[in-house]
Design a protein around this nucleic acid. Structure first.
Lengths: 247, 247
DNA sequence: CAGTGGTCTAGACCACACA
DNA sequence: GTGTGGTCTAGACCACTGC
């Protein structure tokens, strides 16, 4: 059975697998296929879309490369779901002196809903009178507070956040966004600068005033590329560093 | 390396395309296929290796993804060659305030051959009595010196370097390594920290003593993963920043 | 025009997970 | 054993490049 929605001729040529992929991405984005759920087999999908198994396969493989799917021989194809480990592995880049990855503990210092600053509004593509969750937290590695972080996320996207001030966070923010609000962080851009420690860093990181700190400004986006979150992290790099692999 | 306790029911299983790929990577690594040269067609390669076109195709596609090859419909498949633009695009991450990529001008301050320091020897996997080219240079963006950089590369790999002290560099180092010595930089690891400006940075970057600077330590490797070069860059991030895209 | 890589199909068999 | 994804083949046709 041939789906007339799938155009084949030359004008505006677009490969079949790209069209199939678009349809499947849409099913994930709209929640029709939820994170962690099992997809139909390649053969079923091929029948449904009216293409060959090889064509569906190419679409699925690209989506796996993009980390939208997880495929396991003998088991099936699943919609990728953030866990604490996967979220940290892809988005947390701090390592210790030996280059080993370190898992941080996060402690919330403040959590308020307020209007976006001009910088936040510009980065998130929202109006400056729109509301955001404004979170201030420290992240500890080896029991030592090494990062002071300010997070802003529009309440229009993430209505509520179960954060307890003063407590270690049970879940990573990206896990919460996905599990509780159906918003999946798929990519991000980071801008890194060196800055001098100010009063908040002196207080919460225990560094001297004007100590050089690594400032990371990150805009995190969903799978369509729409901005979801802005965070600015100031890191004490005396015992830890930011690691980037260029491939 | 293979533990017999963990040997799998079908020992030594390795996909055909992976074996074909290994043979082709070897031809590039040994210089049998040189950067910029045209490969035989998929059909020819399939006949030569005694496999189907689809199998060769899968090997070629993986190598293209890894940027070892460049493929052009209607023209053919070529061995990837660094140009100033591609080298900078993949390895130079500094952007201006608007997030636009900037091309630097490099000016050599010193170039000597000396014994490796202990740190250099460890990073490059060479003996501490081995010789390296030790290069000190500034990199300018918009006419302003923003990076002071120390490069170390073993003379065992790169015998000679045509650098003129005080002059802007005509070619990127990675282009020289590949064109003149057959050494292709394929990947790198970078470690970023914030540090305080010392006397050399005060002199060459025109910053105040103890100004926070972004320090980037990079180990660059060839396509087999062997370390080729160590460079430590100290960057004034007042008007420029390091950009990283997480996908 | 001929030759290249890119897409698509159909079918066979293999490796793997799980009941 | 059954069903899944992974590999491999053979062949057709399409889009693109350059002579």
């Amino acid at each position: 059975m041939m789906d007339p929605e799938l155009a084949r001729p030359t004008p505006g040529f677009r490969p079949l697998y790209a069209q199939v992929r678009e349809l499947m991405v849409e099913r994930i984005a709209t929640g029709q296929w939820k994170p962690g759920s099992l997809l139909p087999s390649e053969q079923r999908l091929a029948e449904e879309f009216g293409v060959s198994q090889g064509t569906v396969r190419k679409a699925l493989s690209e989506m796996e490369t993009q980390r939208l799917l997880v495929r396991r021989q003998g088991r099936g194809t699943f919609v990728a779901a953030h866990s604490r480990q996967t979220a940290l592995f892809h988005f947390f880049r701090m390592v210790d002196h030996d280059g080993r990855r370190q898992e941080p503990v996060s402690r919330v210092l403040e959590h308020r809903v307020r209007r976006a600053t001009r910088e936040q509004a510009a980065a998130l593509g929202i109006d400056s009178y729109a509301h955001v969750h404004a979170i201030l937290r420290t992240r500890l590695i080896g029991g030592r507070p090494v990062i002071l972080e300010r997070v802003a996320v529009p309440t229009a996207l993430i209505t509520s956040l179960p954060l307890e001030v003063g407590q270690p966070m049970a879940d990573e923010l990206y896990v919460i966004y996905q599990r509780d609000h159906g918003v999946t962080i798929a990519k991000a851009e980071e801008t890194l600068r060196a800055v001098a420690a100010q009063a908040p860093e002196v207080e919460h990181l225990g560094v001297a005033l004007h100590t050089p700190l690594l400032e990371i400004t990150r805009v995190a986006r969903d799978m369509q590329g729409a901005p979801v979150e802005l965070r600015v992290s100031r890191c004490d790099t005396a015992h830890t560093a930011y690691r980037n692999e260029i491939v």
